[in-house]
Write a protein that binds this DNA or RNA. Structure first.
Lengths: 205, 205
DNA sequence: TAAGATAGTGATTGATTACTATCTTAAATG
DNA sequence: CATTTAAGATAGTAATCAATCACTATCTTA
């Protein structure tokens, strides 16, 4: 039995993407090199030509997530929007990304460590930190731009906003992805922005 | 080598508690029956006298979490506090519980293999639903009690509050439990309650 | 077109997994 | 104190895990 040969980089990308796909169904603990190899159509041994260790595969997967995330954020923020809009779009981009790759929360929002954690955890932390940093920067601009006098700490607004994202993702997962993640996120992020005073319409009674 | 024998119910409780403890360090995928047995001081085979299947152990662990959670909520709400305070205390009780049993977010917020397991998933969903239900009920009373005209949907306030909890837990985990989870949660929950208009002091400029 | 580089196979490794059958003995029971 | 019973030990099982081996088929290029 022979398999159509592919150049290494192409095959590696294929393996990483397949792993990302299978992860959302099987979870981290239940995903074996055999399963991945089967779904791609190569031997289990052949997988180890491209990733000498399963740990190396996890690193590649996490790095791919980082790449995808940074890319998604970047696509959003180079427009000339006001900062509030950029914040909103960044968060929605994150939700869109999760919609496309449901394995991401499995890996990033899982507070229970990965099996291969020693090497993977730093990347994990780096991605989350990068997102927080980006939102923080955009937020402090937004606070200045909005014209009102915002009493709340920027970091706290950020925490509340990221909480909204997490709540949406968790509910989306538990309900078997039973609603439009991005739409629901947009609605609640808008609500939180109004409550924080960064967008108009949040005045009470 | 002999071990001091214990009555079954006592040993079972011991196994469940040890599993809960080890889970926060090792994660779900990396926790074997061998490891659990070693830490307790019985043989791996001996564990299967009390739980015929590892799945049965997971069910017992999830049930224990459910019991602990319901207990924590109950202890809080039988006082004569106003509903807003009860909401706040319920959420803080949840944070306190997570502080005591860090394995809880590992299991409840995990979207991985365990969550997808036929028998475990229902319990998982049931616990989260119970928390939401309880908060929702207390919140709608709080909205009536607060005297103000709250424009926001009760379910949305709930989502925002639970988002705060999740954000705190995630940051707490990623920073290696580097701050006081309950204190930080109290602070942000208070902020969110003021923003929502349920507590005084949230007026802007 | 011959030589080298490399993607992939097939077979097998030792370790670990959840789980079982059988025997032993400590502790509860009369 | 004798008998029962059930907690735990001993010693396995088959399956699966990541990883390694010698080797082959295919592609590239000098």
């Amino acid at each position: 039995m022979t398999t159509t040969r592919k150049p290494a980089v192409e095959r590696q990308q294929e393996i990483v993407e397949m792993t990302l796909r299978l992860l959302s169904e099987l979870g981290e603990g239940g995903l074996s090199t055999q399963t991945i190899a089967d779904h791609i159509g190569i031997t289990q041994a052949g997988l180890f030509r491209h990733f000498p260790t399963k740990n190396d595969l996890w690193i590649a997967v996490l790095s791919e997530i980082e790449r995808l995330a940074r890319n998604a954020w970047e696509l959003v923020s180079r427009e000339g929007d006001p900062a509030v809009v950029r914040v909103r779009k960044t968060l929605l981009a994150q939700l869109k990304l999760i919609e496309d790759y449901p394995a991401i929360p499995t890996l990033l929002f899982s507070t229970g460590r990965l099996a291969a954690e020693e090497v993977v955890h730093p990347i994990h932390v780096r991605i989350m930190t990068a997102l927080r940093l980006r939102i923080t920067e955009e937020l402090s601009v937004a606070v200045q731009e909005c014209g009102r006098d915002i009493q709340i700490d920027t970091l706290d607004i950020e925490s509340l906003l990221l909480g909204v994202v997490q709540d949406c993702v968790l509910r989306w997962s538990l309900t078997g992805r039973g609603f439009d993640l991005v739409a629901e996120g947009d609605r609640l992020i808008g609500l939180q922005l109004r409550l924080s005073g960064l967008e108009a319409g949040g005045d009470r009674s």
